[in-house]
Design a protein around this nucleic acid. Structure first.
Lengths: 184, 184
DNA sequence: GTCTATATCAGGATAGAC
DNA sequence: GTCTATCCTGATATAGAC
């Protein structure tokens, strides 16, 4: 799974060659097919792995630094994605790829929608901690906008249309806007 | 070019088979290679075609309906993308694909960044008509957020993670937020 | 569980005629 | 400009041994 995430981040979902994956994992292609039914099976498993891992490292990162207030935690979580480190780049790239692939591969959609929902709810909860008086629908809407924006900015960054620092600023600005909106 | 846009919308950039494109255009594959150097050449030309066409039909749509005030025009322009008509779906899908592909195909990046910039500036100008007292940097920032959000919502819609009507509402909400922010 | 070897085939690209 | 025919690479997936 780790090897698959690396290869997808390097070549894209549609550039993923089972042979390259096998080499990356240090095994033969036959062994890949022993463990997974086919190419799509590999992709589905990798998507689950990636979304789990993203969640994991987000919370771990939180535990690392100094304890943050609710707003700080929200910002951390959303801005974490805009860092040019190998892990972040790898996760963002692979996530974006899986999202884009799902447009053409219906088998991926269900898992993707579920993972998206979990993520949106996590952000909605953080927003609720900053703005405790907000209604659930408003929180959900803000969370959906923020996470969709994050995906949009992220692919612009990765596709060379937007410098990383600028993406960060735009994201920070959006957080401000949404918090202002929730404050009434 | 029209055939290419259709095939990309149907199969994705990475699912585009030169043979299928040729069939769609009613010509032989050899003729495709007579007109374009290689697969990448096809993609670049198609991207330009798609972004030109999107711009064209946005302004035409405007001319169609009743004359709108500045805000109405802004909303029209941004919400137009969330309609389940063949043309819109085709353009959105193809645009999203080209964006996603550019992450792995550096040859596409320059054209893509240019087209993105044109689009952002168009939105910034519309925003400026609604909020004439705003500074250029603030307008640009809002335009970048709105267009990036549009791309993010659009791919969520197309990948089955977000119903179309909901995407529209979220987009409309973001326009509100950005206008409020620009109003100070 | 893991390998080597290979069947099989799809798809990009070109040759050469008209 | 346009076609038919085809070469050839590279990639998925499997057979069968260990």
């Amino acid at each position: 799974m780790e090897a698959a995430a690396r290869v997808i981040a390097r070549r894209g979902v549609r550039g993923l060659r089972v042979e390259e994956l096998a080499a990356e994992a240090g095994v033969s292609t036959a062994l890949i097919y022993y463990h997974f039914k086919d190419r799509t099976g590999i992709l589905r498993a990798t998507m689950e792995f990636i979304s789990d891992r993203a969640e994991r490292y987000t919370t771990e990162r939180q535990a690392d630094g100094p304890p943050l207030d609710a707003r700080g935690e929200l910002e951390q979580t959303l801005l974490l994605e805009f860092q040019d480190t190998p892990e972040v780049r790898e996760n963002s790239t692979a996530w974006g790829e899986l999202r884009a692939s799902a447009v053409f591969e219906p088998e991926l959609r269900e898992d993707l929608a579920r993972a998206t929902l979990v993520w949106v709810q996590e952000i909605a909860e953080l927003l609720g901690q900053v703005r405790p008086m907000s209604g659930a629908a408003a929180l959900a809407g803000s969370a959906e906008r923020l996470t969709a924006l994050l995906e949009g900015l992220s692919v612009r960054w990765l596709s060379g249309s937007l410098p990383l620092a600028h993406a960060r600023e735009l994201m920070a600005g959006a957080i401000d806007s949404e918090l202002a909106r929730l404050a009434g």
